[in-house]
Computed example of a mutant assay.
Amino acid sequence: MRNLVIDIGNTRIKSGLFENDTLIADHVFEELGAGLSVWETLDFDACMISSVRFRFEELAELVPFPFHFLSPTTPLPVTNGYATPHTLGVDRIAAAAGAWQLAGKKAILAIDMGSCITFEFVDELGVYRGGAISPGLKMRASAMNSFTARLPLVDVDRKAPDLTGDSTVSCMQAGIWYGVEFELTGQIEAYRLKIPEITVYICGGDSQSFESLAKDHIFVVPNLVLHGLNCILNHNVE
């Protein structure tokens, strides 16, 4: 079975074409129109769209082919144990479902490093329990600039700075970078103490900056949300 899955975020649109569970093509677009011009040329059996930008009614008028729309009421391959499922971001549950499937339907921690860093936990029974949300790299830099009188807005490179900064800018960069790195390693270790066999997946725009964390049971999978959407779509069409 061939599936098209589309993830419409606030700034970018990502899509993936799957043959069963294998990603055979992926694209990134800035605007919906550019995506439509590509998707209309593809051969697929089913489609699922996840969007934080458009409502279903809006997409139904714009997209010329039938699709499933990921919403809080969409049946999931994992049990949703979240206390407020109507507030759960669709990208969060998709990342959790994707990690759970890649791990062989075992306990996982999915970490999505975007504007915010989200931690999603699915237990060994296949129950999504929730996780944590904290500011991402750029948000931390912006917050220090916005909420102080003299701290500048600093860039955070894609490689680790010196642990000890020797200027205000480099101190801020070190604080941002290692604050995130130590948060990641701390969260992973806390879950590992509870569930030693847990598998960790890291995705999102800043994930490749922290590829050094990848080792046994920790994997960097940039297209994790697309894998999750494909997993959810298969669950709804099979």
Rank of each mutant, 00 (worst) to 15 (best):
residue 170 S to N: 04
residue 226 L to S: 06
residue 184 L to F: 08
residue 195 I to P: 01
residue 224 L to T: 00
residue 222 P to R: 10
residue 180 V to G: 06
residue 165 G to T: 04
residue 232 I to E: 05
residue 144 M to S: 07
residue 162 D to A: 15
residue 151 L to M: 12
residue 147 F to P: 03
residue 227 H to R: 01
residue 162 D to Q: 13
residue 202 I to L: 12
residue 219 F to N: 08
residue 158 R to V: 05
residue 218 I to S: 05
residue 180 V to S: 06
residue 174 A to L: 09
residue 196 P to F: 10
residue 172 M to Y: 07
residue 191 Y to V: 02
residue 185 T to H: 10
residue 165 G to P: 09
residue 217 H to D: 10
residue 185 T to E: 15
residue 179 G to C: 05
residue 194 K to W: 02
residue 171 C to H: 08
residue 231 C to V: 09
residue 153 L to E: 09
residue 214 A to W: 11
residue 194 K to D: 04
residue 229 L to P: 01
residue 145 N to S: 13
residue 206 D to H: 09
residue 164 T to R: 10
residue 190 A to K: 15
residue 187 Q to L: 12
residue 230 N to R: 03
residue 209 S to I: 03
residue 215 K to C: 14
residue 190 A to I: 00
residue 224 L to D: 02
residue 149 A to C: 11
residue 200 V to L: 05
residue 163 L to M: 09
residue 213 L to C: 06
residue 199 T to L: 09
residue 207 S to Q: 06
residue 154 V to G: 04
residue 230 N to M: 07
residue 232 I to Y: 04
residue 163 L to N: 07
residue 176 I to F: 04
residue 190 A to Q: 03
residue 161 P to D: 08
residue 200 V to S: 05
residue 165 G to H: 13
residue 144 M to E: 05
residue 176 I to M: 11
residue 161 P to G: 11
residue 228 G to V: 03
residue 200 V to D: 01
residue 235 H to N: 10
residue 222 P to N: 10
residue 186 G to R: 14
residue 196 P to L: 12
residue 184 L to Q: 07
residue 161 P to A: 15
residue 190 A to R: 14
residue 196 P to V: 10
residue 212 S to R: 14
residue 168 T to G: 12
residue 178 Y to A: 11
residue 231 C to K: 05
residue 204 G to I: 02
residue 191 Y to L: 13
residue 192 R to V: 00
residue 218 I to F: 07
residue 191 Y to N: 07
residue 172 M to S: 06
residue 202 I to Q: 01
residue 213 L to T: 00
residue 150 R to H: 14
residue 195 I to N: 15
residue 232 I to C: 13
residue 185 T to R: 15
residue 146 S to M: 14
residue 197 E to F: 03
residue 161 P to M: 12
residue 149 A to L: 04
residue 164 T to F: 14
residue 215 K to E: 10
residue 221 V to N: 03
residue 146 S to D: 11
residue 206 D to F: 09
residue 190 A to T: 00
residue 187 Q to S: 08
residue 157 D to E: 14
residue 202 I to N: 05
residue 159 K to H: 11
residue 194 K to A: 14
residue 170 S to H: 09
residue 170 S to I: 09
residue 172 M to N: 08
residue 162 D to G: 13
residue 222 P to W: 05
residue 198 I to C: 08
residue 228 G to N: 04
residue 226 L to R: 02
residue 214 A to L: 12
residue 225 V to R: 04
residue 156 V to E: 05
residue 168 T to D: 08
residue 228 G to H: 06
residue 216 D to E: 15
residue 157 D to Y: 03
residue 177 W to E: 06
residue 164 T to N: 08
residue 171 C to M: 13
residue 171 C to R: 13
residue 208 Q to C: 14
residue 210 F to K: 02
residue 200 V to N: 02
residue 161 P to R: 07
residue 235 H to K: 13
residue 169 V to S: 14
residue 151 L to C: 07
residue 165 G to L: 10
residue 190 A to S: 08
residue 183 E to W: 01
residue 169 V to F: 11
residue 209 S to G: 09
residue 233 L to M: 09
residue 212 S to I: 00
residue 156 V to F: 03
residue 200 V to K: 06
residue 215 K to D: 12
residue 183 E to Q: 12
residue 204 G to Q: 07
residue 198 I to H: 02
residue 205 G to E: 02
residue 230 N to V: 06
residue 172 M to V: 01
residue 214 A to S: 15
